[in-house]
């Protein structure tokens, strides 16, 4: 009789197609806009020309080619990577915690990265470094924050439930933020730089940053995408999930681990860009389906597109000055999210 899945259980091709088209548009527009405007067709021809076995006359002058490929494109691509990673990490966190307010910074990744970056900014310049110490310290701080929260949550006698883990994360994040604020006030010279880092920016992006974060992001995205069916199983709670034959505590550990790895990597180069990890998965959830088979892939595509558009605004509104991208994500994200929320039936937990 009935063959395949019904409509409500499928990821519609037009959603995937539409989200991919939006992401491509964001990339092209991101490469177009700036002090020198460049025609979108020239950018696309130039991109085609760079593919193996394809030879197209790009029409870009040498100078424009350098602007597109050395200045704008690395920034745009990093925006795609950061936005996608934060969104899909947010989706994974919301899934394993069954909590709509979960975001990638919930367990102390943000606070840890902030503390690491503050230490590196405040004390780093006095030392002789081979590489920029800020991303390394931010990455280490993010991972350390989550490890601390997990160990604290794990050792609580009441058990390894999602709630204990969230509370442990709240405690660790509060502690690390307090330490970060103390250092920031004590080393007042670095306050502006620390503050700028915390609000997030893609302005220092080059291909080096892209190469640096890409391996972590690819690995963690592969794990989260492969686990999307298990995230659906987790949505019925630990007891029922375990009677369906899975191990909720283990799934939570693996997904938190990989989501944190990817988040720590992107945060180390972009600073703490907020809001993306909550609004993108929720917007997908409210507009399409509560199944993570739909939420995970769409969050990757739309998260990337959203952050690139946010970055375009961040660098255009007060050009040539830039406003922090975290301000833009909240400023356009919040009203948009409110609109989606108003039109929706309810929020899945």
């Amino acid at each position: 009789m009935n063959a395949g899945r019904p409509a409500g259980s499928r990821l519609p091709w037009w959603w995937i197609g539409g989200a991919a088209a939006l992401l491509m548009t964001a990339v092209v527009v991101g490469a177009m806009i700036g002090a020198v405007s460049i025609a979108p067709l020239d950018i696309m021809r130039s991109a085609l020309d760079r593919l193996p076995f394809i030879d197209v006359e790009s029409g870009l002058s040498e100078r424009d080619d350098a602007i597109v490929w050395q200045i704008r494109m690395p920034r745009v691509i990093l925006g795609v990577i950061v936005g996608s990673m934060l969104s899909v990490s947010g989706a994974a966190y919301q899934g394993v915690f069954r909590n709509p307010l979960a975001d990638p910074y919930l367990l102390g990744a943000g606070a840890g990265a902030g503390l690491g970056a503050t230490i590196a900014i405040a004390y780093g310049p006095d030392l002789d470094w081979l590489i920029d110490p800020v991303p390394v310290a931010a990455f280490a701080g993010a991972v350390l924050g989550v490890v601390l929260a997990y160990v604290l949550g794990y050792t609580v006698r009441a058990g390894r439930t999602a709630v204990t883990l969230i509370l442990a994360g709240v405690a660790v994040a509060a502690f690390l933020t307090a330490a970060q604020t103390y250092l920031q006030q004590k080393e007042a010279d670095s306050i502006r730089e620390v503050y700028g880092w915390i609000l997030g920016s893609l302005s220092t992006a080059g291909w080096g940053e892209v190469r640096l974060v890409l391996p972590y992001v690819i690995v963690s995205m592969i794990v989260i995408v492969a686990s999307r069916r298990l995230l659906d199983v987790m949505s019925v709670g630990d007891t029922e999930a375990s009677t369906l034959g899975v191990k909720p505590a283990r799934i939570r550990l693996i997904l938190i681990g990989f989501a944190t790895l990817g988040t720590a990597a992107v945060v180390s180069v972009s600073g703490l860009i907020g809001f993306v990890g909550i609004i993108i998965p929720h917007t997908v959830r409210l507009m399409t389906s509560a199944s993570y088979r739909v939420i995970v892939p769409l969050s990757i595509l739309l998260g990337g597109a959203f952050l690139v558009f946010a970055d375009i605004l961040a660098r255009s509104i007060q050009a040539p000055a830039e406003i922090p991208i975290g301000v833009v994500t909240a400023f356009i994200g919040a009203p948009f999210f409110a609109l989606v929320l108003r039109r929706s039936k309810g929020v899945a937990t």
Binding site: P6, G8, D232, S235, R285, A290, K345, V347, A348, T349
Partner: peptide, 10 residues
């Protein structure tokens, strides 16, 4: 637990 937004089929 009946997750909000999950279809009966899923």
């Amino acid at each position: 637990v009946f997750p909000v937004g999950m279809s009966v089929f899923d």
